[in-house]
Amino acid sequence: MKQKSIGFIGGGRITRIFLQGLSNKNALSGNVKVFDPNTETVNALCTDFQEIEKAETVADVAAQQLVFIAVHPPVVMETLQAIKEVVNASTVVISLAPKITLEKMAAVLPTQKLVRMIPNATSFINEGYNPVTFAPGFVDQDKKKLLKLLKKLGKTFETEEAKLESYAISSAMLPTYFWFQWQEMEAIAKETGLSEEEARLTVSTTLKKAWKLYYQSGLQANEVMDLIPVKPIGENEPEIKNILNAKLLGLFGKIKP
């Protein structure tokens, strides 16, 4: 089957993640256009991904068969208004943003082929955990074709639309809660005598094994945590939990439709 033409409105981080993931699987076939008002952003993408083409206007992207809305929630509706005269009944439109519902999208666009997706940054290495929701008018045959493409980015699964924002908090943004801590642990490992290579290997290997112990040992969470008697930052756990709850539940309240 010939790959549909693809367009990205927005050339930021998530578009780069998608392009890299698709490129890894040789799924960029030279019919991909990207539009972003920041010329330098698009030029950088075109340099890194020779298969894509810089779109001069948002309408150029909207004329593609598969259109990704890769902008932040506050400008999604504005973007949909800008493309509604170009999109037709056969256009597939995928929003990658939280908050803006399929119902709101359908109120503007003349197509029933609407999708919402909350992608994970790990799609960069084709290990994404990406929930999607299809509009009621999306027929099964077209759904299968689209999922075949999206699954190249990693695990892609259907879910209820009402759960998408929860996935945004508990999956899409999840790595950001921990990555800086891993980086700091590598720095501490080097400070206490390990080489850079030893520090990276030590932290990465231990994290992998700790994950396996927590999720695959058959022990309860409290039993796992009780295996190590010394907890150097144990007295700070309540504070850390309070920060997580305050920040993340507060953010959830803002992105919930």
Results as ranks from 00 to 15, higher is better:
residue 60 D to A: 14
residue 63 A to G: 15
residue 25 K to E: 13
residue 61 V to N: 02
residue 171 S to C: 09
residue 229 P to M: 14
residue 49 F to V: 00
residue 33 K to S: 12
residue 93 V to D: 03
residue 37 P to S: 10
residue 127 E to M: 11
residue 241 K to A: 08
residue 118 I to Y: 01
residue 254 K to V: 13
residue 57 T to G: 05
residue 17 I to T: 02
residue 197 E to Q: 13
residue 166 S to D: 07
residue 175 P to F: 07
residue 15 T to R: 14
residue 107 A to W: 02
residue 177 Y to N: 07
residue 76 V to D: 10
residue 54 K to W: 12
residue 236 N to Y: 08
residue 225 M to K: 03
residue 43 N to Q: 10
residue 86 V to Y: 07
residue 200 R to Y: 08
residue 254 K to P: 05
residue 64 Q to S: 13
residue 175 P to K: 09
residue 127 E to G: 11
residue 12 G to T: 14
residue 195 S to I: 03
residue 52 I to H: 00
residue 33 K to M: 14
residue 171 S to V: 12
residue 126 N to F: 11
residue 25 K to M: 13
residue 227 L to I: 12
residue 243 I to C: 08
residue 193 G to W: 03
residue 1 M to C: 02
residue 108 V to P: 03
residue 8 F to A: 07
residue 57 T to C: 15
residue 103 E to I: 07
residue 255 I to Y: 10
residue 65 Q to S: 05
residue 84 K to A: 05
residue 224 V to K: 02
residue 71 V to Y: 01
residue 253 G to A: 06
residue 156 T to H: 09
residue 10 G to R: 04
residue 169 I to E: 13
residue 218 G to M: 04
residue 95 S to W: 08
residue 121 A to V: 11
residue 71 V to R: 04
residue 24 N to D: 08
residue 134 F to R: 01
residue 73 P to G: 08
residue 249 L to Q: 12
residue 128 G to M: 06
residue 252 F to I: 02
residue 89 A to L: 12
residue 181 Q to V: 04
residue 52 I to Y: 06
residue 59 A to F: 10
residue 71 V to N: 05
residue 85 E to S: 13
residue 99 K to Q: 12
residue 257 P to L: 04
residue 157 F to C: 11
residue 108 V to R: 07
residue 233 I to R: 11
residue 53 E to Y: 01
residue 67 V to Q: 01
residue 139 V to E: 13
residue 43 N to D: 13
residue 98 P to F: 06
residue 218 G to T: 12
residue 193 G to M: 14
residue 188 I to N: 11
residue 211 W to P: 00
residue 167 Y to I: 01
residue 250 G to P: 01
residue 84 K to H: 09
residue 167 Y to G: 06
residue 57 T to D: 12
residue 163 K to W: 09
residue 58 V to R: 12
residue 95 S to A: 01
residue 219 L to G: 00
residue 61 V to D: 00
residue 198 E to A: 15
residue 164 L to N: 06
residue 36 D to H: 04
residue 217 S to M: 07
